[in-house]
Amino acid sequence: MSTIPLIHFLIVAAALFSIGLAVAITKRNVIGILIGLELMLNAVNLNLVAFSRHDPTFLRGQLFALFVIVVAAAEVTVALGIVLRVYGHYQTIDPDQVSDLKK
């Protein structure tokens, strides 16, 4: 079985991270920004897994990626709770229009 070289994984992860950054900046919607964040977290996980292939006895990279997935799940849950509250309060989720702390 021919294994893929490490540099290809790293380039794909870099492209994925950049696209996630662009999504998180250009979307005018909180959920769009969350999607960009998910893409960036996936890129970082891809790097961790690609390096973890060269650590076969301990697999620390995969363990770290596992914790990153757990934290991402918690983060998305809390963020969507906040988004629902903000939508109930402002009737919009455009972050440019949510400019008041208290109304």
Partner: peptide, 24 residues
């Protein structure tokens, strides 16, 4: 899977595709 992380691939499918995407 191509990087040899089979358990992490299954976890990715279950948590991201099954959980986070449905929430989004």
């Amino acid at each position: 899977v191509l990087a040899g992380a089979d358990f992490l691939a299954v976890t990715q499918l279950m948590i991201y595709v099954g959980g986070i995407l449905v929430l989004l």
